Simulated assay, not measured.
Amino acid sequence: MGELLSIFIMSLAIGMDAFSVSLGLGMQKIRLKRIALIGIVIGLFHMIMPSLGIIAGTLISTKTGGWTTLAGGLLLFGIGAHMLFSAFNHEVNKVIQTTGIGLIIFALSVSMDSFSVGLGLGLSGAKTVLIILSFGAASMVLTWAGMLIGRKVHGFLGVYSEIVGGSILCGFGLFIIF
């Protein structure tokens, strides 16, 4: 039960970047059908990228032995720290294209950190299918929530959600290390 709770909380942390970006995107007067499609695409990318990371991490861990758990914890902590620092270094965002290749690039950029998290989890030997489904579902729902809230609220939560997500990843990284 504790592991399921950990996976759930980590999934929320991974989806926080999609949530924060979606808050701003939701302020662009996007139709509900488009919001649904964007959430699904981001959810799929949040399943593909950590899958690739877990595969790479598993391959690395079979070759390198026992220190991989430490490396996975350090990687999660580093990603969380990066999220925390980037929350305080916001530049003005350009308008994001939500159609065609623009949507693919957007989803890829939002899910790039989940590859690194998947790599760290692959190094530590986590439950692959459950994590991938959880990451995809959480990021999809958080994207939808961010876009819908962004339609109502104008920009106030974005930085705070990245800080929360980064703090959670740092905490999980420290938990794995110690």
Rank of each mutant, 00 (worst) to 15 (best):
T64Q: 13
S161E: 02
F172I: 02
R34V: 06
A137Y: 07
L174V: 14
G146W: 04
G125V: 03
G39R: 04
S167Q: 04
V129C: 06
M83N: 07
W67R: 12
M1T: 13
L108D: 00
K94V: 09
E3Q: 13
M16H: 01
I101Q: 09
K127Y: 04
E91V: 13
M49P: 00
A137G: 13
G24Q: 09
M27I: 11
K152H: 08
G155T: 07
A36D: 00
G146H: 06
L123A: 04
M47H: 01
V110L: 14
I60S: 08
G53D: 03
L74D: 06
K94G: 10
G65Q: 08
G125M: 02
K63S: 15
L74S: 15
M1L: 09
G150I: 03
G65I: 10
G102S: 10
L174T: 06
G136N: 05
L103M: 13
K63Y: 13
S161K: 01
G39I: 03
G120L: 05
L108K: 03
W144H: 04
K127N: 13
L37T: 08
M10H: 03
L121I: 08
A126I: 11
A81C: 15
V117I: 14
V153A: 12
M10W: 01
G118T: 09
G43E: 08
F77K: 05
L70M: 14
F175G: 03
L121R: 01
I176T: 12
M49C: 08
I176N: 00
E91W: 08
L103F: 09
S86A: 12
I14Y: 01
L130H: 08
A87V: 10
L76E: 08
T99H: 13
I14E: 00
I9L: 14
F88P: 04
C170D: 02
N93H: 15
A138I: 08
I177Y: 03
I168W: 04
G78P: 06
I42Q: 01
S139D: 09
T64F: 15
M112F: 14
S167Y: 06
G155K: 13
I55S: 10
G39A: 10
L70Q: 11
A87Q: 05
Q97I: 03
I30R: 04
F106C: 11
V21Y: 11
I163H: 02
Q28V: 10
S139E: 06
F135L: 11
V117R: 00
T58E: 08
K33M: 04
T69K: 14
F172Y: 13
K33A: 07
A71H: 05
M49A: 10
A126M: 11
S6P: 00
S134E: 07
S6Y: 04
V95H: 07
I14P: 00
G72S: 10
